[in-house]
Design a protein around this nucleic acid. Structure first.
Length: 308
DNA sequence: AAGACGAAAGTGGTTGA
DNA sequence: TCAACAACTTTCGTCTT
């Protein structure tokens, strides 16, 4: 990642992720795209009048899944156009409008509603645009396969968003999604599993390290503490402490320990709250970490330092 | 008094017969 | 479809700072 950018100018968050393929730097906290290095938006021609511009323009509106018709649909006629038309054309106008109406099937109407909801939840969680796109795509597929039937639209939206988050390594916890969407946590998880299974979407188990940045900034911990906790996570992974455990619990415990080591103590309660797990879970993971890795010495060191 | 710790019982999901 | 099972939670009592 280029050195120049360290913090998000929008929200001050320090967790920036650099997407090489797109040449973008994105803030994981608020989704702000900070730099788009490789993309050149300038036009390479000048327009002298609108007609000339029309001819030279090679691309249409961007295609996007966050519009119910992928942004490619056409609207037949506005009211304002009516005034310009004479009798024959007027009939034609109504005929076309009728068709347009019929074409918008139940699926499209559903999508229109659902995507509005999706955008709402996504912006509430400050998710990057790329995740929003992905989840819209997932939802669209789900509707086409009739997976929404028998489930509430909102819960499928939440499930799709959760899946998209996971695929883009910007994990949000089920709790956060549940809070943002107003759907019960259980339900979000259930539709998430259902949708991904039915659509054959493979999701890698989420990496605890992905949560560190967000938790750390929520707890106002230093960058050193953050990188230390990632080190701890790595050695924990080698000691096979991570498999089968909830990634949030592990991330929380690693963060808790490294905060102790750096003398930035947070209570188990505080860490537990931001990570969405209980103190007990943190304690269990914490104990395992101490058993396997010899971190006790490091903690003692900082304790002595403090007394001086 | 607050935080840390640990035991015990309960919950929801996965797995394998 | 059901029971066994692991991970995690809730609750509560005790110890430590």
């Amino acid at each position: 990642m280029p050195e120049a950018v360290k913090k998000c100018p929008e929200c001050g968050g320090a967790s920036l992720s650099w997407n090489r393929d797109r040449g973008e730097i994105i803030c994981r906290d608020c989704g702000l795209v900070i730099e788009e290095k490789m993309v050149d938006f300038s036009q390479e021609w000048r327009e002298f009048d609108s007609e000339e511009g029309e001819k030279r323009r090679r691309s249409g509106a961007p295609m996007t899944y966050t519009q119910y018709d992928q942004g490619l649909g056409t609207e037949v006629g506005q009211k304002a156009d009516l005034l310009k038309l004479g009798g024959k054309d007027r009939n034609k106008f109504f005929r076309l409008r009728k068709w347009q109406y019929r074409i918008s099937t139940a699926i499209e109407r559903n999508l229109k509603l659902a995507l509005a909801e999706l955008k709402r939840v996504s912006s509430y969680l400050k998710l990057p645009k790329s995740v929003e796109e992905e989840s819209a795509k997932i939802y669209t597929l789900a509707v086409q396969r009739g997976l929404v039937r028998g489930r509430s639209m909102e819960s499928v939206v939440a499930g799709a968003l959760y899946a998209a988050c996971r695929r883009h390594d910007v994990p949000r916890t089920l709790d956060e999604l549940s809070e943002a969407s107003g759907i019960e946590k259980k339900e979000v998880g259930r539709t998430y599993r259902f949708v991904t299974r039915e659509l054959g979407i493979t999701i890698l188990p989420s990496n605890p390290a992905d949560y560190i940045a967000r938790f750390a900034s929520a707890l106002k911990l230093s960058a050193e503490t953050q990188s230390k906790s990632i080190e701890i996570l790595e050695s924990a992974q080698k000691a096979e402490l991570t498999s089968g455990r909830g990634p949030t619990g592990i991330a929380a415990a690693a963060l808790y320990v490294s905060a102790l080591i750096h003398g930035e103590k947070r209570t188990q309660r505080e860490v537990a709250d931001v990570a969405g797990v209980t103190e007990v879970t943190i304690r269990n993971r914490y104990k395992e970490l101490l058993d396997e890795l010899d971190l006790e010495d490091e903690i003692k060191k900082t304790k002595k330092k403090k007394k001086r």
